[in-house]
Amino acid sequence: MKYLGEIKLTNKLSGLVILLISILSVITVGVNNGLYYSEFNDSVIVELSSEVDNKSEILDKIDSIDGISRIDRANYRIEIEYKNIDEVKSEVENELGDELNKVDFYKSVGSDQDKVFMDLFIILVIILISSVLVCYFVYFRNETRIKDRRILKLHILPIAFILSSIIIQAGIISALSGVYQIKQVDLYSIIFAAFLTIILYIWALNDLLQDLPEDKSEVLDVVRAKFVIKSKYTILSTIVILVAIAFGLGSQFVLTALIYTLALLVFTFVSLFNISIADRINSKIVRKPRSKKVTTDNKAKAEKVTSTKNKRPVKKTVRGQNRKKK
């Protein structure tokens, strides 16, 4: 059993949870064709004429028509996606009647989605490559400390947790796009959370070198413990500040703050789950005796080596015991 704060999760369950949520996320993204309501889509803008007096009242009358993706009360404007001007006009006419001349209708062309997604992709690739390189240099720069690179793929781990977090966060954003118009700033929550998580992970890895356990199977346990300590304060403080920012910026920022909060939580928890899974894989490899190809010529020698190995007392280590002793 692995401890994740107050939540107890087995490694197998961690893997299943990530897999299940990832599949759900992919399905959500597929169903919504990426993002349902977003500023990248073409829309019809219904805007109140500048000379109208009772703007708020008129806006209240038309704010319930179908397909509204954004209501801008400060500028007396609503945006409707997936409808043409004529459809919107007839619906607004139903609501306003004679007052139809108080509003103007425009077709608005959305911003270029491909460019933004391409930039997002390139930036995330850069962050991933740099994190792998930094992790490699941080952890494996000292050859004398860790030699068995086969089992400790600590520098590859960020790829696993960042990729799975991106899929899940994309699913969350896509799901929210069904009720809220996604803006560019919302998409950057992925970069925001990825950057923060990677730095916390590298920091935890760096600290590991100062407190390196003798037993290799405990390495990931220590990384996880350090990562949890650092994330706990950083993520919680950031979330508290996000809530404060949401209070300051008003209702328009509430869902953005929620997306950022979810991004931070998703990236942190998925990272922890991934470390747990890696720990499980590593433990299995460490426990498994290494098979050596024995030829006829050196069979006797090999047998001697095996018998010498067998004579060694087997030290059974319970993970986490060393730390408890400390």
């Binding site: 500028n75 500040i241 404060a244 920012i245 910026l249 920022f253």
Partner: peptide, 20 residues
């Protein structure tokens, strides 16, 4: 054009940040 978010927001965030 009114801003996307509450125009008083920047001052509020500043004060909250200092209080934090």
């Amino acid at each position: 054009e009114a801003p996307l978010y509450n125009p008083e927001g920047a001052s509020f965030i500043g004060i909250t940040f200092i209080l934090g």
